[in-house]
Design a binder for these strands. Structure first.
Lengths: 203, 203, 203, 203
DNA sequence: GATGAATGAGCCTTCATTCAT
DNA sequence: GATGAATGAAGGCTCATTCAT
């Protein structure tokens, strides 16, 4: 279905303002927590009124839900790209961890929301998110399994392994500072190395 | 200062009820988030009225603050014990990680609150907590440094190393399930191993 | 009915503590207003617990009521003394004003309560107080009338005259400061003079 | 800054409703005392919901504060008008007293609040009010001093004189009844006379 | 379409008062 | 007799959401 140029323009504006609102909301939610942020706060941070926000979103929850969906999408996309290359497990895992860590650092705010505000979703939304999380983990666990079978990865329950690996990366949303002494890239590399080889030196 | 037997009894009862309330609150806060939990909810979960809660605590924030203080104390105590033994770095780090992971798993709820609800504290409280976090990390970084100097730990910025190690452990509060296939001890051991030696096998 | 020595002692203590509480309450009520003062505040200011206050009084209102009664009694007593002397109107009025002004200044706190917190009384109490106020005023109006008939007081509606005279005195509870440059006696004398002769000098 | 016609209309309506609310609140505060009046009471007395009141005011205190500011403004304006005429002291004082008395009677409710609820203001507000009170008194004291120097006013500490004069007038808020036998004008005149010449007739 | 006004449910907190030992 | 514990009724205030123009 084609849209008239005018309708198209309007749709564009809608999308633009929505993005703006979602971004502003994400910033605030990450700082203070979903419940502590008012629709008014979100509007004010963009010099809009409450009503404007309600014009573009039906509810506060809807904004949160968009954040959840967008973050998932970006994570999912990253991993699909890597999978598509059919790399050997060691190489794949290295890239997955690196990319995951970078994603966490680049979108710290979104990640914080993702991990903290799940309880603010309704049951259906929560189920959906849980499912996607499982999919994401499953893809990585597959790689881990392949690595074990190829004899290159340490034998251990893959769920524990992957949760551990991702855990270190996810935690970056807590301690990574943009202004810090190391760039995100550097930190990501350190993580990859630490996870791959451990903190012990091999005699 | 000595208390009369009567006053002592009273204090004991007070402390008991306070513990009860803090525990109930922690459970609810962890499940639903601080803001989403009502003082009424906390009371009801113990078959108390809201007023009883207010008889033992001056504010909702005070309950949260007690949770923060108690959790810090338990973490701090663990590490002090280990430090007191003056073990070589490799041994010490292994124990620290193991104990930290176990702490996280054993008190998942408290840990969740610790990491999620910091923004609900007031400025002074936040400062205090930040200071304690730094102390805790510093003690572990000291061990890491000693390990690097002894040539047994991988050379890397100690702050990144320790944040990474603890990150994997901290993340356990997200995914560890008491009912899972593996015990907390087993999981802790896997983490220690993974962190120490990496997921790669050494040809 | 005679009381045993023991019961007498007890009654004395009761009366003593009650006085203490009423005095403490009056001070607080005057400072912050009846509603803004807690039973706990009253107790605490004497290092008592709330329960102690309730042991000596049945309700907060009862304390307030005692204040009202006591203050009335002291005003009433003063005027009775003066009336008993059967002085000529000019002399009597001069004494009444002087004594009234002194009463206001000496018990500023009580007076403040008397004039501010009447709405906190219940209907019956309010009626009783209104009646007493009328009695008090009536006695002074009588003097004023006698003065007019004797040709020594300015002819004007006696109610207005007396309300005006007392008004100036009552207002002292607002501006009189114990630490001020003038003693209560001096101020009372100035008032008497001002009221008797006016602020204009007679050419 | 110019407002669009629309914004202007809005502002007008806002101001109108605010006035309405302040007036209703003043009436209730005067009757029952600030603390005894609920935001709900204020709303209900205008057939508004509590929420409407909160839409137009941020807090109960803000309403009280507006009352304080408005009453001060009206008193201040009156005296400025009189001062502007540069009358001789006797004439000026007569007008000041008369106008002050009338002000008190015409806005009894506001005056009652002004004198009773000062303790409900916060520190800063209280300071501001105290400062204004001092300014007001100072202007009248100036007149009194001029009168003394001109030899037409009784020699006495001006602060005591003015506090006394105003005291009689202020007290009107306690006893003046609109329905009474005398009009406000009449009463004001009686006060002026009484204060100027005293209650004694001059032989 | 855009937004100012209104709403109602709910939450934290306070406090006079009662109760039980 | 004295008091610690408990209670319930408010009250101020917030806020997501709806409504009406």
């Amino acid at each position: 279905m084609k849209l008239s140029p005018r309708a198209e323009l309007k749709a564009k504006k809608q999308a633009y303002v929505q993005d703006e609102i979602v971004a502003a909301a994400a910033k605030l939610f990450a700082e203070r927590g979903y419940r502590a942020v008012t629709i008014d706060d979100i509007g004010s941070s963009l010099d809009y009124t409450k009503s404007v926000v309600y014009y573009y979103f039906n509810s506060k929850n809807e904004i949160l839900w968009q954040i959840f969906q967008r973050i998932y999408d970006s994570y999912f996309e990253s991993i699909q790209e890597i999978r598509a290359r059919n790399l050997p497990p060691a190489e794949a895992m290295r890239m997955i961890i690196r990319k995951h860590a970078l994603n966490v650092m680049e979108r710290r705010e979104w990640t914080a929301i993702y991990f903290r505000e799940e309880s603010e979703l309704n049951d259906q939304q929560r189920r959906e998110i849980a499912k996607k999380k499982r999919q994401y983990d499953a893809m990585i666990e597959e790689v881990y399994e392949a690595g074990m079978e190829a004899g290159v990865f340490r034998r251990m329950p893959k769920h524990i392994a992957v949760s551990g690996l991702l855990g270190m990366c996810n935690w970056l949303y807590v301690w990574y500072k943009e202004q810090g002494a190391f760039s995100a890239e550097e930190i990501a590399d350190y993580c990859v190395n630490l996870l791959a080889n451990g903190y012990l030196t091999k005699g």
